[in-house]
Design a protein around this nucleic acid. Structure first.
Lengths: 124, 124, 124, 124
DNA sequence: GTGGTCTAGACCACC
DNA sequence: GTGGTCTAGACCACG
């Protein structure tokens, strides 16, 4: 768990944690039934309140990414991974679309966007 | 002033107002020294509090987009327009870059982004 | 009457007008019983409301700098000039004192103030 | 926080608060990352509205003197202190210069200014 | 009529 | 508990 939390990035902490875990799961770094660090442990690790961790775990449970066995701990669920990935992509792309709409109506040239994309996707 | 405010879009109202006015000014639809609607008028018009309008005007004043003469009204300032546009673009593009970084590391294919850009920029 | 009014200097217009007239009187450029421009005339000249001129004249009348003969116009009074000068100086110096107190407690070095004074008083 | 607010001194309360905090920060009495009193606390303390405190904090944040983490509190920022001090001095000195120009053209003798400065800077 | 300041109180998200 | 947003209403100075 090498999460880095930015205290002052606008994004709430619990969301940053969720994003990180979701990314780990979708990238395959976390496998089915693998135990997550305990709420208390992760809280100590990140030096933030257990409440925040609990909230993140609870959200992900509701989403189907994690499951909890009372008294044993919280574990990774990799069953609905396709659905998960689809939902995730849909969310990200709708955010992207919003951004593009904003950039377009601000009159930013198409080339400047393509240039940035090129840089991140390492095209030749 | 044909601003349309979404009463509940996450974005605070004053920011929506700022965005709208900034766009109008930067697009040249408002000319230098042109009077803006008074805070009371615009507030009545949009059916929201004068304070919210005042806040938007004050922010834009700090940015250099408007200026106010107490007791006379609020007016458009078009002097440092190039600087304003540059700053605005820089802000928007850095937000875009962040988004791209997120999309890239989530494994979203480049083509899907290009498709969305194409749609907004109406390419053939 | 070569008054220059700054629309946006914080100082209200009527005060700028008063300051100007007071300075003219104290410097001897306006003589006893000399007629002032009519309210309407000066208003047209400066391109501002007659109300503002009226207010400035009224204030100065209360102060004893001007006097009005109904139907004839407004005139300069040079009788209490010493008292006037004293009051004026007192006011200016108390403002200066306030400023100095502020500068001192902000830790501005004495030399920097002296340098500015030197510049304005053209010392060798 | 031993701020004393003059309820009616011409200067708006939020400005008095800003001045006080700015002075504390620039004088080094507050250290980097030190938490400021919460808006509610300080408001109760000074017996004024939270909104007035919020306004002061927001202004100082914009200036770079404070920073806020939503839900956690407001803290002192001492990073760009040199820049802050420079800007502050520049502002104060330009106000001083204006004053001097006024005093000079009103014919106030140089000695009287020096006497006041002497008094505040406790020269022998 | 205009903006500038201030109040008292509300609801929300986050920790 | 914290700050962020918004409201409805007040009083003031200026033109």
């Amino acid at each position: 768990m090498n999460i880095s939390i930015s205290y002052s990035s606008g994004k709430p902490m619990y969301e940053q944690i969720e994003d990180f875990i979701r990314a780990e799961v979708l990238s395959g770094k976390l496998t089915h039934n693998q135990p997550m660090p305990s709420v208390r442990h992760l809280a100590a690790d990140l030096n933030i309140s257990t409440i925040t961790i609990k909230r993140a775990y609870a959200d992900l449970e509701r989403e189907g990414v994690l499951y909890t066995i009372s008294g044993k701990g919280t574990f990774v669920r990799l069953e609905d991974m396709d659905r998960l990935r689809d939902e995730r992509e849909k969310l990200l792309l709708s955010g992207f679309e919003e951004k593009i709409s904003e950039l377009h109506s601000a009159g930013i040239a198409r080339e400047r966007l393509l240039e940035i994309i090129r840089r991140y996707y390492e095209e030749l």
